[in-house]
Simulated assay, not measured.
Amino acid sequence: MSTDTNTDSSWQQTDVTRLLGLDLPIVLAPFGGVSSVELAATVSNRGGLGSYGLYGYGADRIAATARELAAATAKPFALNLWLPLGDSENIHPSQEEFDHYLAPLTRYFEELGLPLPERPAAYLPAFEEQFEAVLEARPAVLSLVFGAPTTDVVERAHERGIRLLGTATTVEEAVALDQAGVDAIVATGAEAGGHRVSFLRSAEDSLVGTFALVPQVVDAVSVPVIAAGGIADGRGLAAALVLGAGAAQIGSAFLATRQSAAASVYRDALRGDGAAHTVLTRALSGRLARGIPNRVTTEVDEVAPFPVQNWLTGRFRPTAGERGIADLMSLWAGQGTPLVRHDDANALIDALLADAGARLA
């Protein structure tokens, strides 16, 4: 249970908690590739919103994951999908183009003793396939990144009783999401770790800081707002609420806990010196993302388009993680990562509540 000694917990009830049926204004960021049922269920069971990233998951795997989550928690949880952006679902490079994209990465396959991958028939499952599986699973919440949902997506989700969260990196994107009919908006600042999920302008032209973005979004939209980016402790949670957000989405601090699916070498990196010097890079996925620099981010200059680059590096990154080679992994991390203090998710939640509660009393 929480160690918070402040008896006034009224600050914990907000427009977001009421909308989503939560007890705490804390949202776990969805992690592509390193989400875990244990961590999502831990956050949900404590009264926040546990989230699970479904990037690259086919329908069967989505159904199985949703069943595991439902067995681990009776509380609301969110599943997360990437909307198709541009022609990302229709990229089919020729063999010659594929070989050209692979060439700058061959050194890493050789270093790990892995065979070079062959050109696949597809690089990602179709969004429609994933969405149908989510509809069948009926999570309390579906969070979306890289776009605004169509009217069909909104209506079909709402028919199943699923709340929709959209993700914005600018006020313009937040307004577009509001007009599309989402139930709440995650305003994610440039400090956030992982991919920059901009969709109306280039990611490089959408780097607004969290605490400049949040109050502007609050003023511009009609739905509740969740603050994200650089929030890793109770001070950040309190600040987000004071600026008008109804909850804070927290990533790196939870990713560093033992309940996450991050490899131990990744969790160590989140506590290392490099965490204070994150960079924005396309080297690992083909899309701009914030993480701790390593050999891949510094050595790879020629990058294939997304999702080809992400698929290619995804052929060696898991092996690197298993072998503890951080230089060949995606070490996504936000600018608040040096504030990471806890290796247990429950201890982190206790600290968030105690510190925010003391400041908001």
Rank of each mutant, 00 (worst) to 15 (best):
L353M: 14
L312A: 09
G48Q: 10
R196F: 00
T17N: 12
Q216A: 14
L116E: 08
S202A: 12
G357R: 06
T65G: 06
R315H: 08
A137P: 01
D301A: 13
L243K: 07
H195P: 01
P307H: 07
A126S: 13
S10T: 15
P307G: 06
V265P: 03
S222F: 00
V300Q: 05
A203H: 03
D205F: 00
D152M: 05
T188W: 00
T167E: 08
A239I: 08
F316M: 01
A72W: 04
L164Q: 08
H158C: 11
T281H: 00
V186G: 02
L328T: 02
F127S: 12
G161D: 07
H342N: 06
A263Q: 06
A41M: 09
R359Y: 11
G209R: 15
E191K: 08
V154K: 00
Q130M: 11
Q259A: 05
L270M: 12
S88F: 01
L116Q: 07
Q12R: 15
F146K: 13
P84T: 13
F316N: 00
D87Y: 09
G324S: 11
A361L: 06
G181C: 07
E155F: 00
E299M: 03
L207W: 00
L49D: 02
P224Q: 10
S10P: 12
Y55S: 11
A180L: 06
L339W: 07
G33K: 02
G189F: 05
I26L: 13
V223F: 04
G321K: 01
T337N: 05
T210K: 09
R156N: 11
A41I: 03
L288N: 05
L288M: 14
F211D: 01
H100M: 13
F31C: 05
S9L: 14
A269C: 07
F131K: 05
A247M: 04
Q259T: 04
Q12E: 12
F306L: 06
G336A: 11
A304V: 09
F127Q: 13
R61N: 13
V218K: 12
A121C: 00
G86K: 14
F77L: 04
I185P: 02
A140L: 09
N80W: 01
G324D: 07
A245S: 03
T65H: 08
E302L: 08
R267M: 10
G48F: 04
S264K: 15
G48C: 05
R317K: 08
A66D: 07
F127P: 12
I231K: 07
A40F: 05
A78P: 02
V296T: 02
V153G: 04
A354F: 00
P139M: 05
A187T: 10
G161Q: 07
S10D: 15
Y57V: 10
A212T: 15
L177G: 01
R290A: 08
G234H: 10
P149Y: 06
